[in-house]
């Protein structure tokens, strides 16, 4: 566990989370959410929770991204608020 690396990955994860909230294009928000999940996966793996990191990589970064892309295509791509 290296705390500098922890803070660096956490910084990138927070940037991705803020970008995913604020962006208007929902497809871009889905892709940025996938990047957020990837940074969280790196953070879990770096802190020693390899099983949680594995689940995060397979579920959050892969399957939920596909489901969100499907939902965006079924509805609309532009946020209205």
């Amino acid at each position: 566990m290296i705390w500098q690396l922890d803070f660096l990955i956490l910084f990138f994860a927070i940037i991705c989370a803020l970008a995913a909230i604020n962006i208007k294009d929902l497809l871009s928000a889905v892709i940025i959410l996938g990047a957020f999940s990837f940074f969280m996966c790196l953070l879990w793996a770096e802190m020693g929770a390899v099983d949680v990191a594995f689940t995060e990589a397979s579920v959050a970064a892969a399957v939920s991204t596909i489901l969100f892309v499907g939902a965006v295509i079924k509805t609309t791509r532009r946020s209205r608020d």
Binding site: V50, D51, A53, F54, T55, S58, V59, A62, V63, I66
Partner: peptide, 28 residues
């Protein structure tokens, strides 16, 4: 991942999700 789930990271859930991701790749 499924076969080595009981003494290494991974297991039924993660292996099943990866199998579903392979099917989703065929789908896409």
């Amino acid at each position: 991942v499924i076969a080595h789930g009981h003494y290494s990271p991974g297991g039924g859930f993660q292996g099943g999700v990866i199998l579903a991701a392979a099917l989703a790749l065929i789908f896409l």
